[in-house]
Simulated assay, not measured.
Amino acid sequence: MEWRCNNCRRKKRHFFKVLIGDFSDELRLPPDFTKHIQVKEESGNASLRVCGGRTWQVELRKVDNRLVFRKGWSNFVVGNGLRTGDFLVFKHDRVLHFIVRVFDASACEKRRLPAGDTCRNAEMSNVSMSEGSLDCSSFKHSRGRVTGPQQDAWNAACSFKTKNPCFRKYFTDKTMCCRSYYLNVPSAFVRQHLAFESCMLTLFDPEGRCYPVRYLNTSESGGIVGFSSGWRKFAVENHLREGDACVFEFIKEPIGFKVHIFRGDKDGTEGER
């Protein structure tokens, strides 16, 4: 893909984006900024570097005369813990290379997440309940040992029995419930049950309501695996909160998951809030 900056003196080197709506799969560049970059082909690979951090490779594609970050953008979103309301400033450093600064709702620049901390929700998983019990009494997360009703919620999730494969999630951060557009799936579970390409799945809540979600699998390129588009709608409408625990029970017809929700403010009781 051939690119050329139309503004040799780089008078317009910056643009900003406020993250609203569903930004998990793509991000559109401002039309006025796009005018300063000449595109001779439909797509190319761009580099996004966070100040003082790592660099992500993202597809920059021309769609309806707009430039859009597409393939690889989801990795950037999850890798930097982006949330609704975050404010991103992009500096066009050179052709197809951008330096990105991320600010949260407090108007302060976000700290760079260390490796392994890109998803701030604790998790445990199992392939089959018959393979053994989980030691829930020793479960901890980044804020310390889980106690009280929240411990009850996790214990209830651990005690849940099913013949189907399942994995569990404990939400330690309210932003993972009500503001995030993405939920990662444990890699061990993916390898044994979800080792197929990205597709649409269905989540069924405790009331039997169905929610289509996109299953995103970019593991072959070292990327992320989890639920993207559709996850936030499920989380909001089921009132997921910090301290809740969920069991995701895998079903094949229709392919998707029955989600059992255990409430952290109701002594681990399953069901509606």
Rank of each mutant, 00 (worst) to 15 (best):
H92P: 05
H92C: 04
D93W: 02
R94M: 04
V95K: 14
L96F: 08
L96K: 15
L96P: 03
H97C: 04
H97R: 14
F98K: 03
I99D: 10
I99L: 13
V100D: 08
R101D: 07
R101E: 15
V102M: 05
V102R: 10
V102T: 09
F103W: 11
F103E: 04
D104Q: 00
D104Y: 02
A105T: 14
A105W: 12
A105V: 12
A105I: 15
C108E: 05
C108K: 13
C108A: 09
C108Q: 15
E109A: 13
E109N: 12
K110R: 12
K110L: 06
R111F: 01
R111E: 05
R111N: 00
R112P: 03
L113A: 02
L113P: 00
L113D: 03
P114F: 00
P114C: 01
P114S: 04
A115T: 14
A115P: 09
G116H: 09
G116S: 03
D117Y: 01
D117N: 06
D117S: 01
T118V: 00
C119V: 14
C119Y: 12
C119G: 03
N121H: 05
N121W: 03
N121C: 03
E123P: 01
E123G: 00
E123S: 06
E123Q: 03
S125K: 04
N126W: 02
N126P: 03
N126K: 07
N126G: 06
N126L: 04
N126F: 03
V127H: 13
S128G: 04
S128L: 12
S128K: 02
M129L: 00
M129H: 05
S130D: 08
E131I: 08
E131C: 09
E131Y: 15
E131W: 07
G132C: 04
G132N: 10
G132Y: 07
S133A: 11
S133C: 07
S133M: 05
S133G: 08
L134N: 08
C136L: 07
S137H: 12
S137Q: 12
S138I: 02
S138H: 01
S138Q: 03
S138Y: 02
S138G: 07
F139T: 05
F139H: 07
F139E: 00
F139G: 06
K140R: 15
H141K: 09
H141Q: 09
S142T: 10
R143S: 14
R143A: 08
G144S: 07
G144W: 10
R145V: 10
R145D: 11
R145G: 11
R145S: 14
R145P: 13
V146H: 02
V146N: 02
V146S: 03
V146D: 00
T147P: 04
G148A: 14
G148V: 08
G148N: 09
P149T: 13
P149K: 08
P149G: 03
Q150I: 00
W154E: 03
W154K: 08
N155W: 09
N155D: 13
N155Y: 13
A156T: 08
A156Q: 05
A156Y: 02
A157E: 10
A157L: 13
